[in-house]
């Protein structure tokens, strides 16, 4: 039997890799993919909890998270396409119109 802890640790590692990708990559595109990575890490922990606590609610939440991830990918890619069309840039350190 695999302990529940192992799944949570795996989920945390993948989530942190996603955070690292989001914070360090220059390409806006890879940053969006890092967000997908983080959402998938959360899904793994929810399915693991659902199995070990013998409750279906974790899997229901995963369905909602996949819905939100699909919506977020569509909106994010539309933003990237319009950004590239207007500025010809897709690197996070070059997009500094607001002096942030």
């Amino acid at each position: 039997m695999v302990p529940l802890n192992w799944y949570i640790i795996l989920s945390a590692i993948i989530f942190l890799i996603g955070v690292a990708g989001f914070l360090t990559r220059r390409n806006v595109f890879i940053m969006l993919m890092s967000i997908e990575l983080m959402l998938n890490a959360v899904n793994i922990s929810l399915v693991a909890f659902s199995h070990y606590l013998q409750d279906m609610r974790g899997q229901i939440f995963v369905i909602f998270i996949i819905t939100v991830a699909a919506a977020e990918a569509a909106i994010g890619l539309a933003i990237i396409v319009s950004l590239f069309r207007n500025k010809q840039k897709m690197h996070a350190d070059e997009i500094a119109e607001m002096r942030g």
Partner: peptide
């Protein structure tokens, strides 16, 4: 509703 907003938003943005 979230999916509907995503459809409309993606079309308006792109």
């Amino acid at each position: 509703l979230i999916l509907l907003i995503a459809i409309v938003g993606a079309m308006v943005l792109a």
